[in-house]
């Protein structure tokens, strides 16, 4: 029996075969993930079509400054992630660890900023069910029910997105640990590449959340 490569399962012919299957698995999983957010996009579209005024008013009260900065943060994390995958396939261990750490840091920074934003939203009484000022919206001649629907979708979409990012940060943490122990080689770098795909996907979702939540209509200020 030929010597099996390290990390190779018995039912695959070669590391390439295994890596390729892992990547396909991740792509298929991302198709599933697309429908996770797809359900929310559908509900959002239905209500936005029906209550455009409420959605526009709600959107203008979100903090575009934090939303915009977070977009840049996440895009930068995608860059470091892509470079990390490159470093892994070149076998540059030290660079790989540094880039993974940078990605981890940027992902956490996104979550930190998001938390600050949620807190502000709470202080501005923009949280249906917990802190929501129906009267204030009526004074603006906007139906509070419609704003509430917008805000619910804002929290569910960003919340599920943040959950995905948290999972991504957890997995990257494990990968960083393994990378620092020299676990990955140019032949065996599929886990990094696979979770890189996941990371980029979470980034892509945010690229849609930005216009759908923060850029619904013409704004006059960032917040």
């Amino acid at each position: 029996m030929p010597v099996r490569d390290r990390g190779l399962w018995h039912h695959f012919d070669s590391l390439d075969h295994q890596a390729d299957s892992n990547l396909l698995g991740m792509w298929v999983f991302l198709a599933t993930e697309l429908l996770v957010f797809g359900a929310l996009f559908t509900g959002y579209s239905a209500y936005r079509w029906r209550y455009p005024a409420g959605f526009e008013a709600g959107s203008r009260h979100l903090n575009l400054l934090i939303g915009g900065v977070n977009t840049v943060v996440l895009l930068t994390s995608s860059l470091t992630m892509a470079l990390a995958v490159r470093a892994a396939s070149q076998g540059r261990q030290a660079l790989l660890v540094r880039l993974l750490l940078a990605t981890l840091f940027l992902g956490s920074a996104f979550l930190g900023l998001k938390a600050v934003e949620y807190r502000q939203d709470y202080l501005e009484r923009l949280v249906p069910g917990l802190a929501f000022d129906r009267g204030a919206w009526q004074e603006l001649h906007v139906n509070p029910n419609h704003v509430q629907l917008f805000l619910i979708f804002y929290y569910v979409m960003t919340g599920i997105h943040a959950l995905h990012l948290t999972i991504g940060i957890g997995v990257l943490g494990i990968l960083t640990l393994k990378a620092s122990r020299g676990h990955f080689t140019p032949q065996y770098s599929a886990p990094v590449e696979m979770w890189g795909l996941y990371w980029h996907f979470v980034d892509i979702i945010w690229l849609f959340l930005l216009p759908l939540l923060y850029l619904v209509s013409t704004r006059t200020s960032f917040y």
Partner: peptide
Amino acid sequence: RLYWLALGSGLLWLGILMTLTL
């Protein structure tokens, strides 16, 4: 090609969900 297939199916199904609901 299969990555495109996976992505394409995801998008197609999302399209079905949104189109028919709307």
